[in-house]
Computed example of a mutant assay.
Amino acid sequence: MTFLYFAYGSNMLPARLLGRCPSAKVVRTGVARAWSLAFSKASKDGSGKATLVIAPNSAVPGVIFEIDLAERERLDRHEGVGSGYRRDDTFAIEGSTVPASSYLGTSLDHTLRPFDWYLATVIAGAEYHGLKAPNGETDARLRVIYSNGTESDLLLRSLQRALYKDEAGRRITEPSAGPLFDDQTDDSDQASGTIYVLRSKSDHPVVAENRAVLHKIGVTGGSVERRIANARLDPTYLMAEVELVATYELYNINRAKLETVIHKVFGAARLDVEIMDRLGRPIVPKEWFLVPLFAVDEAVNRIKDGSITGYVYDPESARLVTR
Rank of each mutant, 00 (worst) to 15 (best):
G82F: 11
V296P: 01
Y85W: 04
G19Y: 10
L69H: 14
A231R: 03
E274R: 12
L75E: 04
I217L: 05
L13N: 06
Y248W: 07
A140I: 06
L198A: 02
A7N: 02
R319I: 01
E73R: 12
R33S: 14
E137N: 14
T111R: 11
F266S: 04
I262M: 15
T2P: 01
G280K: 03
A92R: 13
L154M: 15
A162H: 01
Y85K: 04
W288G: 00
F6V: 03
A168R: 14
E167L: 12
A24G: 11
A55P: 02
V27G: 01
T150G: 04
D89P: 09
P22E: 04
Y118K: 01
R28K: 15
L159H: 15
N252F: 14
T90I: 06
F39V: 00
T121F: 12
V197T: 01
A177C: 11
V81I: 10
A318K: 00
P179A: 14
V245P: 00
R170I: 13
M12H: 06
S107A: 14
D187Q: 09
M239I: 07
A140S: 10
R141G: 12
Q184H: 06
L290N: 03
S223G: 08
L155V: 05
R171V: 15
D183T: 14
E298P: 03
T97L: 15
A124V: 00
R323E: 08
S147H: 12
I228V: 15
V26H: 15
Q160H: 15
C21D: 04
I93D: 01
P134T: 01
D89S: 10
F91Y: 01
E71F: 09
P282H: 04
F266Y: 05
G130E: 04
E287K: 02
R323N: 11
F266K: 02
E79R: 03
A229D: 11
V321H: 09
G221M: 10
S96W: 12
P134N: 08
V219S: 08
S96V: 05
R278M: 13
I308Y: 06
G48W: 07
E66M: 07
I67W: 06
Q160R: 14
G62Q: 02
D189M: 05
I303D: 00
V53W: 02
Y118N: 03
R211A: 06
Y5G: 06
Y313G: 02
G222Y: 05
G221V: 08
